[in-house]
């Protein structure tokens, strides 16, 4: 009898403890979830702060004359060659095709909706100052930023970065600065080229669709062009170029000596590049509105 009663009370205790444990686990789960969110936000903030700090360091180096040794200049030339010069024929061809298509469609839509009077503003305000940088960003991100990200990660995994450090070659001067300058220069030049090609195809399509003479087209363009918009677009291109090369470098440098870390840092880098592009685009639009 006494044994049973002890057993019973033990059973009850066990039940209570189970309930208690379950309750705690539930609470634990919800707490963990909130903690997770907090951790992610903290991590994102830290990463953002880190990127800004790294940007500051790079900018400081960029402004130092000593940074530009013969080796750095050679890397810069090579980078510009691979990013812009090598793809120039293909870029021009794609620009002509894409811009013709784009301008043709936009003009036809404007005509169909009876918005002919806004054609200059649409051409300059939307296509030239907004779409041209995006087109160049896409090209440079897909072709160069991804390559830079992989290159950095592989160099880190192969201990090649350690080699440079061993020979007292500054990674920032030799690897980071020329790549970032290349990003900025290529972005500005390629998006300008795209915009010029676009405006040239605009002459053709304004004649075909609106039966517009070159003089009228010129006048409309001049009236709807704002130097502040062009300035903002060029600055935006330079900022795009800065970040779409800086972020892949930063993420590439996070790789470990294991090759399996390469895809991880590459995907992380590219996602962050995409986010950076969105943020810069939004900021530029806000600047325009203000």
């Amino acid at each position: 009898m006494s044994i049973k009663s002890v057993f019973d009370s033990g059973y009850l205790k066990l039940l209570r403890s189970c309930a208690k444990i379950e309750f705690l686990t539930d609470m634990g789960c919800s707490m963990e979830w909130i903690e997770k969110i907090g951790r992610s936000i903290g991590k994102a903030g830290k990463s953002f702060g880190g990127t800004l700090a790294f940007s500051g360091k790079v900018l400081a180096r960029m402004l130092r004359r000593k940074t530009y040794s013969s080796a750095t200049r050679e890397v810069l030339v090579n980078q510009i060659y691979f990013t812009s010069v090598q793809i120039l024929p293909a870029f021009l061809l794609v620009s002509i095709l894409f811009s013709s298509l784009l301008v043709g469609i936009v003009f036809q839509v404007l005509k169909d909706f009876g918005l002919t009077e806004f054609f200059g503003h649409v051409l300059m305000g939307l296509i030239v100052t907004e779409l041209s940088p995006i087109f160049a960003v896409l090209l440079i991100t897909l072709r160069s930023a991804s390559a830079i990200n992989v290159e950095m990660a592989v160099m880190k995994s192969n201990r090649e970065l350690k080699t440079l450090e061993t020979f007292r070659i500054d990674l920032m001067n030799y690897l980071v600065v020329p790549r970032i300058i290349n990003g900025m220069v290529s972005m500005v030049l390629l998006s300008s080229l795209f915009a010029i090609v676009l405006m040239a195809s605009g002459v053709l399509f304004s004649g075909l669709i609106f039966d517009m003479s070159v003089d009228v087209y010129r006048n409309i363009l001049l009236n709807s062009t704002s130097f502040s918009d062009i300035f903002i677009a060029l600055v935006k291109c330079a900022i795009f170029g800065f970040f779409i090369t800086l972020i892949p470098i930063r993420f590439g440098l996070r790789a470990t000596s294991e090759l399996t870390s390469v895809p991880v840092v590459v995907s992380g880098g590219m996602v962050n590049v995409f986010l950076a592009v969105l943020i810069i685009e939004v900021l530029s639009l806000l600047t325009k509105l203000l």
Binding site: E151, M155, N158, K162, T166, F167
Partner: peptide, 13 residues
């Protein structure tokens, strides 16, 4: 110092 070592490889790119 200028090391020659497997741990200080040539740059592969």
């Amino acid at each position: 110092t200028a090391p020659v070592s497997v741990d200080v490889p040539l740059l592969s790119n």
